[in-house]
Design a protein around this nucleic acid. Structure first.
Length: 257
DNA sequence: ATGGTAGTAAAACTA
């Protein structure tokens, strides 16, 4: 069985349907994990997904955050939140026997702010969720906007960005500790030591793509038994180059089970 | 150089 998975920080799902819907039709992934849907549940564009043959689960309250998963078959055992908090930042379920966790990790604002401490705690709690409710021998996918660039190769200027919340050593450490529980970075498995592979380019940076001023902060992680089955992973730049572009790109991984 | 743009929504907040 072929399994194609994608993750995309949409930065408002209603403002990105012109990208999302054609992309799903063309690429036909089994799963698309989305973050920053920025829409209240009552206004979620369910029909746009159903019209092209996708199911969708979602939770959001409007202005900030919001997560969703579109899938070809129904996602089972769907749950939201991390130990009762942030239901608009974590959604998980089971797809054809594979556990799927989609997260929008708090960004953290600045390293000296309480919000950064909250981000670090969030990542530690996420590790605890895996420890308590999952097993690294299971087939598990963890996808999302992690707001962490794990290694120097994942940012354009590691020296200048060392105090940025997405590259600060403490965030990288907290992220790495989740990987050490039992996850493989599927994109990096297929592109070892390949520089300038970024999933995010800030709108505010002029000519960011041409100047390669990006970040690799969106990830698809898989437990070892599942990562062994991955056959490809790549970054689709189309959303960043579209008419009304988004700041994030789409990250894809394919498995042959 | 501490700006810049884009999203929510109707002024400021988040990224």
């Amino acid at each position: 069985m072929r399994l194609k998975v994608a993750t995309y920080n949409v930065n408002s799902i209603r403002s990105r349907l012109h990208i999302i819907i054609p992309w799903l039709e063309e690429n036909q992934p089994d799963l698309l994990c989305m973050q920053e849907t920025k829409v209240d549940d009552t206004k979620f564009p369910v029909k746009a997904f159903e019209d092209i043959g996708y199911k969708v689960v979602f939770h959001g309250t409007g202005r900030y955050n919001g997560v969703a998963i579109a899938s070809k078959e129904e996602l089972k055992d769907v749950r939201f939140g991390l130990f009762g908090r942030d239901p608009d930042r974590l959604v998980r379920g089971v797809y054809k026997g594979i556990h799927v966790i989609n997260t929008y990790v708090p960004q953290g604002y600045k390293i000296d702010s309480p919000r950064y401490q909250y981000k670090l705690q969030w990542l530690r709690d996420l590790r605890r969720l895996f420890e308590e409710e999952y097993d690294p021998n299971w087939m598990i996918l963890w996808c999302g906007d992690m707001n962490v660039a794990p290694e120097e190769i994942d940012v354009h200027n590691p020296k200048r960005l060392k105090n940025h919340v997405d590259f600060h050593i403490e965030a990288r450490k907290a992220f790495k500790e989740i990987l050490e529980w039992g996850f493989v970075d599927v994109f990096r498995k297929h592109h070892p030591n390949e520089p300038h592979q970024y999933t995010f380019y800030d709108y505010r940076v002029p000519k960011a793509i041409e100047r390669k001023l990006g970040w690799r902060v969106d990830h698809i992680l898989a437990t070892k038994p599942l990562a062994e089955k991955s056959v490809d992973s790549y970054i689709d730049m189309k959303p960043r180059l579209a008419e009304k572009p988004s700041d994030h790109t789409i990250l894809v991984a394919e498995f042959e089970l």
